[in-house]
Nucleic acid binder design. Structure first.
Lengths: 156, 156
DNA sequence: CATTATAACCCATGATATCCCATAAATGAT
DNA sequence: ATCATTTATGGGATATCATGGGTTATAATG
């Protein structure tokens, strides 16, 4: 599993160390590389084991070759993905496209998500996290309200 | 697996380098060549390992003789396909027909699609990609691939 | 056979990525 | 707290890649 949050630096060659615990998990799955793509909804970069993308590729492959959506999905997902190999020290180099998408310059935050992880430009991540907490908070109070409303309804 | 997009140049002899990662995947399948044919639906050129064409040929034999797509497969894919060999530097030369079909002149975009890849005239591809992203956004929720992706997420 | 066009081979080059080694910081064990 | 190990980071050396061009082989044509 990919757990917890780390912050590392990009060096002058654009290399960045992937946290050792993330690497060892990938290694336990048999990989010396990782696949990544720009998030559809945020400025984050999404990372996953290659097997996950391979399954996606297999699914797309089962679509009828004439199916219009086949190309749409292949292009919008696979074409925008990258396989990044670790150097002997466990570093990767981020493609220019992903640096642009994420706004990453000299520092990176790694965010464990269980089966996947993300990379963020630090300030963008902290803001995203704070917003997410606020939303969760208001959702919780909404939930409480509706629960108590239901409870009251039952009592009557 | 064929991933990512690359942009390369045609030289004065009409040669173009196939991205090293694409070549190494073909090489891992035992091929020093690649098969290609014009896309039925776009100006792209479709590329795949020879084994895939062989499988497609077998599939055509099993299709209902009255199936409309049968002839399209047979003529568009098999009759109009080419086997292109790599030179020692990993380049290929595109047949005149495919240059015409694609509108490729001096620059090419390679588009990874998992089991296959494409070549596009750059401007035509960028336009296609923008459309694909819009469609993917609206279709993402109800597609098979997202089901399989979620399924995998639960498994690991 | 000779001619010509095309494709294949060989070598060169600059940019980039990869490898290899060093060091400092962090972690874990005794 | 002390020591050993792992980890993150830095930088020089090496290899790979995309590209360009000269030269040789192959094939088609008259």
């Amino acid at each position: 599993m990919f757990l917890s949050t780390y912050e590392n630096k990009l060096d002058s060659k654009g290399r960045v160390s992937v946290p050792a615990s993330f690497r060892s998990h990938l290694s336990s799955l048999g990989y010396n590389s990782v696949v990544c793509y720009p998030s559809f909804t945020t400025t984050a970069i999404e990372f996953c084991p290659q097997s996950r993308i391979e399954k996606l590729s297999d699914t797309i492959d089962t679509l009828n070759p004439f199916e219009e959506n086949r190309d749409v999905f292949a292009t919008s997902v696979l074409a925008d993905s990258f396989q990044l190999n670790f150097d002997p020290e466990g570093r990767i180099i981020l493609p220019e496209k992903l640096l642009d998408h994420s706004g990453i310059k000299d520092r990176v935050v790694f965010v464990g998500q269980g089966k996947t992880f993300q990379m963020w430009e630090p300030n963008k991540f902290f803001k995203f996290r704070d917003d997410a907490r606020k939303k969760a908070k208001s959702l919780r109070s909404d939930l409480k309200w509706s629960q108590s409303a239901n409870k009251e309804r039952e009592e009557k």
